[in-house]
Nucleic acid binder design. Structure first.
Length: 561
RNA sequence: UGGGGAAUAGUGUAAUGGUAGCACAAGUGUCUCUGGAUCACUUAGUCGGGGUUCGAGUCCCUGUUCCCCAGCCA
């Protein structure tokens, strides 16, 4: 047996608790977690943190993890959302075929539990409206008052509750409340509502129910019913834990342990479903899967890999401190993954025509190009070299500053996998703008090396003008101008910080012919520019690419100074 | 002014009474047919004040700051 010299990985506090529970034999050392989204919106990167945490935990401790839809509010929930959530969780890499559950499947059981509480004198039907309920609740510093309906008899409560269930009362006219303590310092314990009347059609149970359980009543029961051992949730539910504990203790049923961690915040974006929904509904973005959105589907469309997202989630860790992660860290994880996996191709986004004056007019020379220098398995391809080419406009300067190494009048550079070329003349239009470059090439440098050993300072990407494919390229920048979009002037909301340049569409871009083979969803690197993902909007006539991320750009940094 | 939480480089995250480490960011250099990647290096931290201890980020006391809670939302 070989000694495992791998340094002991430090455990985060969640894993620390679980490890202790396993050692102490709690729940027979079982680990069963769950991810419980409400199907009222699309999943975002913050959910990915939770998904990866919960499913990783199950994986690491040989346990299970359920995907459970918390569908207790029919007025907000839709099938579109459950479908997207299933798709996203699967895409993230988790096998959930046998572990999809719905809170709505437990409605009858919850109803029976409620009757149990009523019979025990621990719950009552209350006729107070929402406005009155709020008044009776008191305030943060002042105790509440008992509802005048608090002392109804068990029989009366039973009868009324059944009538509520049977739809005999109007929405909002009655609720079932837990009888706890109206003076409790924790407001959640001041006779919380367990059921409200909602004559709404549910995406799964249809019109069977017209009373629906409140989250605080339902959630702990769902976990309990599924035999969950560790209910991992975000910090804001810490205040609710005493209530879940109370319900479960009254009912004397399986008692999972809730552990709270800090939700993910990230710079230059928003992470609330309400705000994301507003962006979608107000058409400030093009749907939930707009590549600028922090949604899983948006990131997928943008070209982020699930592996990069998993790596990101591992890197940020899990703790109770509230934090805001630098978006640059996510980008780092994306680049890190794509660098190893994405094939390289050449494409020109801002074309400047180049004529190689000493190159034969109808000649096409197919040159060898390596697909991925980071992966020998990726092989090679051919790229066509012709008399007329396109280079990136930014790769030429008529009056280059000291640190600009690229093409300039009289200067020689290498065209990647091609030849050394020298700029011999500059053609301008009547406005004085450069519209074409005349260059000469050195036939001896075919493939990119000079037999005489002479060197150049720059290697540039290029595309043949005649042997190329046309593309539309969408360049994405931060959706918001500020690190914290929620920081706004009085009277404004987060949309005031929207970045008007978050999307730049470039048409008439030229790509090398090999790009014809790229399928929607595939991410490649356009050399020297960045990673780009082929979009589903691509047609036979025109490919569409989304910029996933730029490459790190030292020149841009120098240029900024 | 009630209750519940949290404070470690710019941003995150470790160190469970014993050398404050890692990643990202920033910077410098190396290398390069991608100004990418790689490699090497640098900058930079325990919220304040007391105490216990040979020794405190860690334990005790005290103060400060920040977050969450008054939906028939989750």
């Amino acid at each position: 047996m070989t000694e495992n010299i791998e340094p002991k990985r430090s455990l985060d506090f969640v894993r620390g608790i679980i490890t202790e529970d396993i050692e102490s034999g709690k729940w027979d050392s079982r680990v069963h977690t769950r991810f419980p989204p409400e199907p009222n919106g699309y999943l975002h990167i913050g959910h990915a943190k939770s998904i990866n945490l919960n499913f990783s935990l199950a994986q690491e401790f040989s346990g299970k993890c359920n995907l459970r839809f918390d569908d207790t509010n029919p007025v907000k929930e839709e099938d579109e959302y459950v479908n997207s959530i299933i798709e996203d969780v699967k895409w993230l890499g988790w096998d959930i075929d046998d572990s999809i559950f719905y809170a709505s499947d437990y409605f009858q059981q919850m109803y029976d539990y409620a009757i149990e509480l009523i019979k025990a004198g621990k719950a009552y039907v209350c006729d107070l409206g929402s406005e009155e309920t709020r008044k009776y609740r008191g305030s943060l510093t002042a105790p509440g008052q008992n509802s005048p309906y608090r002392n109804r008899t068990v029989d009366e409560n039973l009868e009324l509750f059944e009538k509520m269930k049977n739809g005999e009362f109007a929405d909002g006219s009655k609720t079932l409340k837990a009888k706890i303590d109206m003076a409790h310092p924790n407001i959640n314990m001041r006779d919380p509502v367990m059921y409200r009347i909602l004559h709404a059609s549910h995406h799964r149970s249809g019109d069977k129910w017209c009373i629906y359980p409140m989250y605080d009543w339902a959630h702990g029961l769902e976990d309990s019913l599924e035999g969950i051992t560790h209910s991992i949730c975000t910090l804001e539910f810490e205040n609710h834990r005493p209530l879940y504990d109370w319900f479960i203790d009254q009912l004397n049923i399986h008692h999972p342990q809730q552990i709270e961690f800090a939700r993910l915040n990230m710079t230059y974006t928003v992470m609330s479903k309400r705000k994301l929904l507003k962006l979608v509904q107000d058409k400030l973005v093009n749907g939930w899967d707009d590549p600028r959105m922090p949604t899983i589907s948006g990131m997928r469309r943008r070209g982020y890999s699930s592996e990069a997202i998993l790596d990101f989630c591992k890197t940020i860790g899990v703790a109770k401190t509230e934090s805001t992660i630098d978006f640059a860290l996510l980008e780092h994880c994306v680049r890190n993954d794509l660098n190893k996996k994405a094939n390289r191709v050449m494409g020109v986004i801002d074309p400047l025509k180049v004529v190689i004056e000493n190159y034969p007019e109808d000649q096409v020379d197919w040159l060898d190009a390596i697909n991925n220098p980071e992966d020998a398995e990726a092989g090679s391809r051919k790229v066509p070299f012709t008399r007329e080419l396109y280079i990136e406009r930014g790769d030429f300067m008529e009056e280059p500053p000291k640190k600009f190494f690229r093409l300039a009048p009289g200067r020689e550079v290498r065209l990647r996998y091609g030849y050394f070329v020298t700029c011999t003349d500059v053609v301008k239009n009547e406005k004085g703008e450069v519209i074409e470059l005349i260059c000469s090439y050195d036939p001896e440098t075919r493939g990119g090396n000079a037999p005489d050993g002479r060197r150049v300072k720059a290697t540039m990407h290029w595309v043949s003008a005649s042997e190329s494919v046309l593309a539309e390229i969408r360049l994405y920048n931060n959706l918001f101008n500020t690190e914290n979009p929620d920081k706004v002037e009085e009277g404004q909301d987060f949309t005031a910080n929207l970045n008007s340049d978050s999307l730049e569409v470039r048409i008439n871009c030229f790509l090398e012919p090999a790009c014809k083979e790229i399928e929607p969803g595939q991410t490649v690197q356009f050399e020297r520019l960045g990673y780009f993902c082929c979009d589903k909007d691509s047609t036979a006539e025109e490919l569409v690419f989304n910029r996933t991320a730029t490459l790190k750009d030292t020149w841009a940094k120098i240029n900024k100074k």
